[in-house]
Design a binder for these strands. Sequence first.
RNA 1: GCGCCUAUCGUCUAGCCUGGUCUAGGACACCGCCCUUUCACGGCGGCGACGGGGGUUCGAAUCCCCCUGGGCGUACCA
Length: 464
Amino acid sequence: MSDLRVRFAPSPTGYLHIGGARTALFNYLLARKEQGTFVLRIEDTDVGRSTQESVDAILQAMDWLGLSYDEGPFYQSDRYNLYKNKVNELLASGLAYRCYCTTDELDAKREAAMASGGKPRYDGTCRERSDSPDAPCVIRFKTPREGNTAFVDRIKGRITVDNAELDDLIIQRTDGNPTYNFVVVIDDAEMGINLVIRGDDHVNNTVRQIPMFKALGYKVPEFAHVPMILGADKKRLSKRHGATSVMAYKEMGFLPEAMVNYLVRLGWSCGDEEIFSMADLIEKFSLDNVGRSAGVFNPDKLLWLNEHYIKTGDPERLGRLVTEMLEEQGVAVGDGPDMSEVVKTLQDRAKTLVEMAAGARFYFEAPTAYNEEAAAKFLNTEQREILQLLIKHLGALAKFDVEDVEGAFKNVMQESGLKLGKIGPTVRVALTGSTVSPGIYEVVAVLGQHAVVARLQKALASLR
RNA sequence: GCGCCUAUCGUCUAGCCUGGUCUAGGACACCGCCCUUUCACGGCGGCGACGGGGGUUCGAAUCCCCCUGGGCGUACCA
């Protein structure tokens, strides 16, 4: 057990998205690797936008990915007294002040500053005022104006900003609610977080938060800012690039290990290795090989990884997932062939569970109609003899393994003088209704003697 | 606009710190060939990058500077 304490702190204003999931993953991996503590904190100070549904969705997605946490979830909305006390502390020590400027005034100031080529930051109108009129006000933190603020980022190295660039941040709104940049400081400190791993988009906040850590007498934690994830057009990843919600990928038939593997390799590497299990990652992950620049989300590679995990996955487990999917579609799976055997025939040809479920369907539902074109070609009266021979030989089998089935086909070929190329397509259409399926011997063996003979007879009866 | 960050194949990246072993390696995608009863899998091969310009050096993807591109921030959002 090390003393490393990291945290993931999502704001519950939507689903867990790809970027957030990677941040959570990095935190999780480092915590597990160093045997530290992973804290989950819900940042719900934006009362208007935070919802319980979002919290549930985030928790669910983390669970799906296998990211367990050691402490929390803590809700900032439960901790308002703490924040209030800290505001008063700062007010008392003169490190914060009441600001009576209205939103309109602020907007005007910003515009003016921008117009004159300056930084659109608060001009400090209320900074030195000593009266405290009975009017609505916000509380601002008195950011130092001289010198600079610097820190050594564990990923990006040294980052320095002149304090003159900084703003007097609002730490408490007119309605009395504290703001993000303030509570994040208090919570990270009070929760003993000593390494903050978060998105790149927070580097600017970090230099604004550091003076607050100091003002409140807290030790400044270490920081590691992971680069953003962009869309194909190099713009920040958003809905218009396709699905950005982690759980949307579950719906699309992706396996969590594929998502984890993909996410970790976006921005992190370990030599030429591409395939990592969670256990591998816990052993090998390090902030040292996290890249410094933004990466483009590549669905093709995610799909490739998913394909890999489907190909190498445990048929039993895959079977359970496919069963779930088929049942949702109203397919009765109970009386059909053994699901793991079904899965085995599909593992090499499905890229997603959705594809696998679609490909598995015929095992449980006899074709109600044949593909028109295929039937015309492979189920016409010319195939009468083939079907009859097939029924005869397959029906006579005492054992129905792939080898036995193959043997029966050999006999059919011999007796009819036809090659497999002439027989296979007919069997395929008769059994599956389509021209695409796993290997014909496997299909026959897995489907089972009873169903095979029945479907062949039905096909025979349909000949015209 | 201003500030911060960043820059190797289309994409993810190795290499950069500790210059020569880099005619720059791997992976995804793409293309071709092989395998094959369908669809796939698989095997083999191919295409493809050090953003530009200056330095430093015998020698630079690797070190320095400038430019350019991209990202982020600039909220009483987080």
